[in-house]
Design a protein around this nucleic acid. Structure first.
Lengths: 106, 106
DNA sequence: ATTTTTATTGGCTATTTGGCCAAATAGCCA
DNA sequence: TGGCTATTTGGCCAAATAGCCAATAAAAAT
C-alpha cells in the first residue's frame, strides 16, 4: 500500500472514528431532528457537560457537524445528513447477526 | 437516556468501531471487488500477517464479513455491501472540509 | 460591576487499542 | 510421519481514548 493510499484511508478513518462511539451516534441521531444546544444534549445523555462538549468537538473537528453560537448557547447541527443512511446499514448488520444467533439456538 | 437506548447505541457503536481503522476500511474496500484470502490482503497491506488476521477477526465479530475456509486458506467476503454506500458519504464530508479550507486561504 | 448561565479546556487516571514477535493450530503433500 | 504453508492466538508494550473534576471564558441578567 503506497503512502498516498495510506493517507487517503487515514483521512477516511478519522471521520468514521468520530462517530464510532455510542454517545456520538446518539448525538448524530438526535441532530437528525434538527439543531440542539449543548445543554439539551447533556440532559438527554446524562453525562457531565464537559464530556458531552468534548464529544461534540470531536464531531465538529471531523466536519460532521457545525455550530451556531447564539447568546450563551451553542447550537450544533448536522452538516452531512447522508450519515443517517449509514445507520440503516448498521441496523441491517445487527438484524442479520441476531437472526443467525437465533438460527443456532433453534 | 434509558438502559435500553444505551444498549442499542452500544451495539451500533461496536459495528462502527469495527470499520473505524484505516486498514479495516481498506480491507472492506478491497472485498467490495470480491473475496480475498488473508495472505492476499496481507501482501497488499504490508503489515504482519498476525496484525491483518486480527483486523479481519474484528470485522468478522462485528458481522461485517464472513469466511469460507478452503484448504489451508481462509477467504473473507463482505456480508453487507451496503457499507460501501457509506464511503461515499465519508468522501463527501472530506471534500466539503477541503473546500472550506481552500475558501479560507483564498 | 458582580453574578449567573452556558460552554470549553486542562489535568488526571483507568481502560482500550494496535502492532509486533513467538507459539500454537490446521490442512496438504511427499 | 514430517515438513510446509496459511492462519490464529497470547503476551507484551506504547499510544490513544474516555470520563470526571476543577479552572477558565464569554455573553446575559441583575
Amino acid at each position: 500500500m503506497d503512502l498516498k493510499t495510506q493517507t487517503r484511508y487515514n483521512a477516511r478513518a478519522e471521520i468514521v472514528k468520530a462517530i464510532a462511539h455510542p454517545t456520538r451516534l446518539f448525538i448524530v441521531d438526535e441532530l437528525a431532528g434538527g439543531e440542539k444546544c449543548v445543554c439539551e444534549l447533556t440532559k438527554m445523555i446524562g453525562a457531565d457537560i464537559s464530556t458531552v462538549s468534548k464529544h461534540l468537538s470531536i464531531l465538529k473537528n471531523a466536519g460532521i457537524v457545525q455550530i451556531d453560537k447564539r447568546g450563551t448557547q451553542v447550537f450544533y447541527q448536522l452538516k452531512c445528513p447522508c450519515i443517517l443512511r449509514f445507520f440503516d446499514c448498521v441496523e441491517s448488520v445487527l438484524k442479520e447477526t441476531a437472526r443467525e444467533h437465533i438460527a443456532i439456538v433453534d
